[in-house]
Nucleic acid binder design. Structure first.
Lengths: 368, 368
DNA sequence: ACGAGCAACTAAAGCGCTAAAGCAGCTGGG
DNA sequence: CCCAGCTGCTTTAGCGCTTTAGTTGCTCGT
């Protein structure tokens, strides 16, 4: 493949079109049902059928009705490739997640997001192309391939980083795209973002009001813009409220690091009395560690999760969390994406609802 | 749309090809890079380029090299639609999940499965089309549409039910498909299945060996074949081992029902001393309820999850689970799917690894 | 009553690619 | 020395659809 040395059209690969062996091509010989079949059935020309099916002028209402009936009766569907070849959109949008595949899967966030997107996409019969890759380079290669193959009409870029090479690359490809969670530099691509800063401020204010002064933040990957925003917000809040003893510890978002960092924090001489976790999975892992170490939650330790899902509700005590409706976020993102595909240039940055603090059972006045 | 009354080609819809508004079609006027451009560049005919790029005979090695270089230099990618139109495979496989979208997302199973599949699919540059719908009717409609539109080369059917209308429907469509978890009637479609029965038997034997006699099973949806197999296995095991007091309680797999059923079970006069949950999410929810009710795990109640993921490991006590490598299962499924796409008829039923009991901290001799 | 104008259609071209058929120029066996 | 049989290419057709450019056969205004 021209892109990056390995791929579809390797010289030696003996002509595997899109990754299958050659044998596959032989397969289908059962001729498809085409527009011409309908035309024959109804007794008109193929173009008349096309007009009718697409609601375009050029056929009488009577003929149109007969054609539509015939199409329905014969269970005809337009061949997506044929349409796309004529310049029509591909009818699909793409999402690439760049993570080592084994560690993903436990985070409900993307799953929720995708399901939310689906409720918009399904309604419009737009397909979602999903790909999970290892790193950003592979992600870029997928974007280039999809763009070149004209497979997608739009892209969703997630987890924008502080200096994100994907933005410029995708802009260069000319594929409409939405950035999720960017609010800084993200080129000319519109973003759907949430006010992490405000959410963090609210959380810290609440914890401070309860009487906590030693607040720790088990953060995510510092490369992510939203992680940065949260770290900065905590620092600012600490300054405003006069909390001397706050800290943000970066992790890779995994439950393992979440647990390890918690263990470390709780072993310190001046252990924090409250911990804010950047993901619900890490919060649950942290709770597990606390339980295991005999640190009572919330009596001795308050826990807040910066993401909410069933996870925070199935454990005991139920975890206080910054909840946002991820499903609704997915809807919002998908709608923005549809919009930018249909009418490029009409979409600006969109601020999603700010995550709100849902107080459950894991937070209380600092004990002892 | 011909299929079921609502869809792409509604008469009044003014010709929205694949769901976008008409405006979208006007968009792209920047002409694509085509095979002809490469041909011109190199000074050969388009077909020579096609031969070269596909590794077919008909060009000299020297010319082939020049063409490949030019293609790479110009960053050319084949237009997927054009290829597909010529009869080549679509380069995509489809997966439909039929669940109310809001309740999904917390179950790591599908996410893990998908990520596992990706490691096979990505390597072959085969895309995954994902759609989440509400019910089986909608699922069938998606299959019909995808087949009609020639969007996918293969399908993965998950959660086979006792009398599953999808099997016959998909067979009728003539699209290669793999059934995940079927092991009963699933037509002529091959299945990748795990031996739930053996897993359940092993679990019950283990619990019985510990001394448990009152064993409850918080099952999933009875319509699913695998749920049925587990229920039957428990009954059989109870018979063999002389356990009088076992029961299976069906649920909808949600954490809510899992918690509710647990609460009910633990409130009975002769409460079970061990509970087997059909999903890790329900197991965690059950553990939460036990903790909340002051029932000590594992001292007073042993808990086993019939599915394993981070969830079972982040809580405290860590939950004993029937673990299988879902990621590996995804790999296996994707490989089977690729195989059946390439060479239909060569794939038989495949038995995946039997889930093995991973004993952690949530099981012990019945206490008091 | 006659051409302009329109409605309702058909014919044909083209999207980018693959594949079958065609066609030069060479080699080599009888 | 001639032509079968290569190799290495080009030409052409065709995938299923949309779309533009016709082509009928009307109606209508004057």
């Amino acid at each position: 493949m021209p892109t990056s040395g390995s791929g579809v059209n390797k010289p030696g690969a003996a002509g595997a079109a899109s990754g299958y062996g050659r044998a596959a091509i032989a397969g289908k010989n059962k001729t498809r049902l085409t527009i011409a079949d309908i035309a024959r059935e109804v007794g008109v020309s193929p173009s008349a059928v096309s007009f009718a099916l697409n609601g375009r002028p050029g056929v009488s209402e009577a003929t149109r009705a007969r054609i539509l009936q015939a199409a329905e009766r014969m269970n005809w569907h337009p061949h997506s490739a044929a349409r796309a070849l004529g310049g029509a959109p591909a009818g699909a949008v793409g999402l690439v997640l760049a993570r080592p595949t084994r560690t993903l899967g436990a985070e409900p966030f993307y799953a929720q997001l995708i399901y939310g997107m689906q409720s918009v996409l399904s309604a419009r019969s737009v397909a979602l192309l999903l790909q999970v890759v290892d790193d950003t380079d592979a992600e870029l290669a997928v974007y280039r391939r999809w763009a070149g193959e004209q497979r997608v009409d739009g892209l969703l870029i997630v987890d924008p980083q502080t200096k994100d090479p994907r933005i410029a690359a995708v802009e260069g490809l000319g594929v409409p795209a939405i950035v999720l969670g960017g609010h800084g530099k993200h080129g000319d691509l519109p973003t759907v973002w949430a006010d992490d800063r405000e959410a963090m401020l609210e959380t810290v204010r609440y914890l401070a009001a309860l009487g906590h002064t030693r607040i720790a933040h088990v953060a995510g990957t510092p490369a992510f813009q939203h992680t940065q925003r949260r770290i900065r917000a905590l620092k600012d809040a600490a300054g405003q409220l006069g909390l001397a003893d706050t800290q943000s510890v970066p992790t890779d978002f995994s439950d393992g690091e979440g647990a390890a960092v918690t263990r470390r924090l709780l072993s310190q001489p001046d252990a924090p009395t409250a911990i804010v976790y950047d993901s619900d999975l890490m919060a649950v892992a942290g709770l597990g560690v606390a339980t295991e170490m005999g640190v009572r939650v919330p009596a001795e330790l308050s826990i807040v999760s910066f993401d909410d899902s069933v996870l925070t509700r199935v454990v005991h005590p139920k975890i206080t969390a910054l909840s946002r409706d991820t499903h609704a976020l997915g809807v919002q993102v998908a709608e923005a994406l549809m919009r930018i595909v249909e009418e490029p240039g009409t979409v600006g940055d969109i601020k999603a609802a700010t995550p709100r603090l849902t107080v459950r059972e894991s937070t209380a006045k600092p004990g002892r």
